[in-house]
């Protein structure tokens, strides 16, 4: 059980094509260890595609992704998870069962109990389960989920389920956390809550966070660095202040607003 510490993530010239359509075109950026890095851009800019490449779900046609010195492109998703990269999903994807079940799934990569040991309740498997459940309960408490710990996720309200997803990702003790629109669909109070939580995670754990988000207020408040994508290309990269004043960014966003 070696806890992975945050490492540098380098994305170099990543290109992804679907049936003739180029979803990501030669995109590069670097997430420095321990920082919050935001990936923004209008709808269809390729943000989610980028997440899917980083977590091994999609294959890049060209380019490389290096995390802590390891090349990720070509790795299966579970192997990527094994390096300490955890993610949440834009649309909540939880497993039927209790909050505890979902959090324990997050600890899958940190646990070892196999089919035989679990089926026969071998002492090692029982101890492991008990120990990791206690840690999962701690993480639930950190995210304010302790009162829901043994409840089925299906019955929980949307905002709470979003937090469960975040807790599940944290249960993997990641060095890099990928958050795909963590406040989408939330009301203003829940958004504030979530922003505070993300800040607290960073302060308490010192891990890197890569964030895809539409809520500009949240991005400007939390992010150390911002990368802007538009039509699959990187159009800007820098601190929130410089990006905010970048003409290309203004054009991409305002252009879209005019069309709407």
């Amino acid at each position: 059980m070696t806890a992975p510490t945050a490492a540098r993530l380098e994305v170099r010239g990543v290109t992804v094509r679907f049936a003739g359509l180029t979803a990501l075109d030669d995109v590069s950026f670097t997430v420095e260890p321990g920082t919050v890095h935001a990936l923004i851009g209008p709808n269809g800019a390729g943000k989610s595609t980028c997440f899917n490449v980083l977590s091994g779900v999609y294959r890049a046609a060209a380019g490389s992704v290096v995390y802590g010195g390891r090349e990720l492109t070509g790795m299966a998703p579970h192997a990527v998870a094994g390096l300490g990269i955890a993610r949440t999903f834009q649309n909540i994807v939880l497993t039927a069962g209790t909050v505890a079940d979902n959090l324990m799934l997050g600890r899958h990569r940190l646990t070892r109990a196999g089919f035989a040991a679990t089926a026969l309740r071998l002492p090692g498997a029982v101890r492991e389960q008990r120990r990791h459940r206690a840690r999962a309960a701690e993480i639930a408490e950190f995210l304010g989920l302790e009162s829901h710990f043994d409840q089925p996720v299906g019955a929980l309200p949307y905002g709470v389920r979003k937090r469960v997803e975040l807790a599940r990702a944290l249960c993997a003790e990641p060095g890099l956390l990928l958050l795909d629109e963590p406040v989408a669909g939330m009301n203003p109070a829940e958004r504030l809550d979530m922003a505070d939580t993300v800040a607290a995670i960073r302060a308490a754990l010192g891990i890197s966070i890569l964030l895809v988000e539409h809520d500009m207020g949240m991005v400007m408040r939390l992010a150390d660095t911002v990368t802007v994508l538009d039509f699959g290309r990187r159009i800007a990269d820098g601190t929130p202040e410089t990006v905010r004043q970048d003409p290309a960014v203004l054009h991409a966003y305002l252009g879209q607003q005019e069309a709407a």
Partner: peptide
Amino acid sequence: TAAAVMGVP
């Protein structure tokens, strides 16, 4: 997909 991303082969 979610299972794989959580580290399940």
